[in-house]
Design a protein around this nucleic acid. Structure first.
Lengths: 101, 101
DNA sequence: TCAAAAGTTTCACTTTAGTGAAACTTTTGT
DNA sequence: ACAAAAGTTTCACTAAAGTGAAACTTTTGA
């Protein structure tokens, strides 16, 4: 079957959903930590571009669909090696990482 | 004082030091996992460019010099948020991350 | 409308990054 | 040569990522 037509929520929608409205303490505290969300969206975009379901991707990487789901949606941290594994083994792509001073 | 004039070892030197000569089982098994090394080198280059000691960097980030040393040299994994913290708080730079399909 | 496929959530467990103090080694500058 | 600063290593602990099974919810396609 095809992947579900998941609408990618925006960063603002995500923040409000998870951290509350702007100006609240919780929201402000966590404002800086949205990088994980961006990674999740990035991964989801890439997966859909490839026309893969979470389960298909999971199998290629050697994990389960529940873990893929968590990465795409949750606030959880991802290790660089994990991200790399998903991108390379699962999506046949390449993860780029650089420091700009 | 100034940072030590650490010579950055090459990827090949690193691999041989940590995993043994090419062709051995251990070396082959871990061949793919050198991304951490590259990150360490990247960070060290950036730190030296800024003329900071490990201790100075550590203080800015809110950690200790022993941890900085580990990241620059060890095989250990680094979380993306940790890397980001070091780059932004410590080096005043920006961490770029992208997926190429 | 409704079964099957896709995606999410919960729970419980294992592994490992993150952490600091302290002892140690290496480099620097005089 | 040698003291002080820079960097490394070890040890031990804590918090959080990694993991899978299974129950659950949502979407798809006929």
């Amino acid at each position: 079957m095809k992947p579900k037509n998941n609408k990618l929520i925006t960063l603002d929608e995500f923040k409000e959903k998870n951290y509350g409205k702007r100006g609240t303490k919780k929201r402000d505290e966590l404002e800086a930590g949205y990088e994980n969300f961006k990674i999740g969206v990035l991964l989801q975009e890439a997966r859909l571009q490839k026309g893969l379901t979470q389960e298909e991707l999971a199998e290629k990487v050697g994990t389960t669909k529940s873990y893929i789901s968590k990465i795409e949606n949750d606030i959880k941290e991802v290790r660089i090696s994990t991200l790399q594994k998903i991108v390379e083994l699962g999506l046949g792509g390449h993860l780029d990482l650089s420091i700009k001073l």
